[in-house]
């Protein structure tokens, strides 16, 4: 075959292959996997809000440069009734160990600083305290993955501090017991004043639903006692 003809034939074949490849990819790729366009420099994309995904991407960004007020300090596993009963119960587990402490560790790690105000509502008190103002909070999605991956923050040398247990509780157990209160805790954030405030307030109820708001909003809702921290 004439060398020039051969070369041109090869080029044509390659070009056709490359073009077909390109067109197919352009048309089909978005239907195989979702792509996100970004309008801001944040990792959290506005589409995640509509989908209820990765609420903690927004949460970490919101608290990174702020002080956060919490209702409690964290407690070790030794203060829970199931502690030391491995021999007796096999694999004892007290869900309160996770529900009461994981958020504390989370804010201690990712916020600029934390303070504790024990006068803030905690557990069962939270729903009653926030019921009139629930409309001011935006629902960012469920917290399971965020909490499941908070195991690195738990430095107690016990079984319940391992990735395996966190996965079991926030993933397997939740999926097997979807109707159980607290299986799919939500993250709710009030955006009012969030950017200007230097201090934020984080509350969570007995089902681990998290409520984050700017300090002025908490004051308006009467959640903060006069005199501040205890």
């Amino acid at each position: 075959m004439n060398p020039k003809l051969k070369r041109n034939a090869v080029l044509v074949c390659l070009s056709v292959a490359a073009l077909a490849n390109f067109i197919h990819t352009a048309l089909k790729a978005p239907s195989v996997q979702k792509f996100y366009r970004y309008d801001t420099p944040a990792f959290y994309n506005e589409a995640f809000f509509d989908e209820g995904r990765y609420p903690d991407l927004f949460l970490r960004l919101a608290i990174r440069e702020k002080e956060v007020m919490l209702p409690r300090e964290s407690r070790t596993y030794a203060s829970y009734p199931s502690f030391g009963r491995d021999e007796e119960d096999g694999n004892p587990f007290d869900a309160r160990y996770f529900k009461e402490n994981n958020y504390v560790r989370y804010f201690e790690e990712y916020a600029s600083s934390v303070t504790v105000d024990k006068n803030l509502p905690f557990g069962e008190e939270v729903e009653a305290a926030l019921k009139p103002a629930l409309g001011r909070f935006s629902d960012f999605g469920i917290a399971n993955d965020m909490l499941r991956y908070s195991f690195p923050l738990n430095q107690e040398k016990i079984q319940q501090a391992t990735a395996f247990w966190y996965y079991w509780y926030y993933h397997s157990f939740a999926e097997e017991n979807p109707g159980e209160p607290g299986s799919f805790p939500k993250i709710r954030i009030a955006l009012e004043g969030l950017t200007e405030a230097e201090r934020l307030v984080a509350l969570w109820d007995e089902n681990e639903n998290l409520y984050l708001m700017a300090e002025p909003v908490a004051e308006e809702l009467g959640l903060l006692s006069p005199g501040g921290d205890s």
Partner: peptide, 22 residues
């Protein structure tokens, strides 16, 4: 207080990020 749009909040919280990143 009115709630700002989510995009506004995201832009505010990452105002200096593009410069730093670049």
């Amino acid at each position: 207080m009115n709630a700002p749009a989510l995009t506004e909040v995201l832009r505010f919280l990452t105002a200096l990020a593009p410069l730093r990143e670049a």
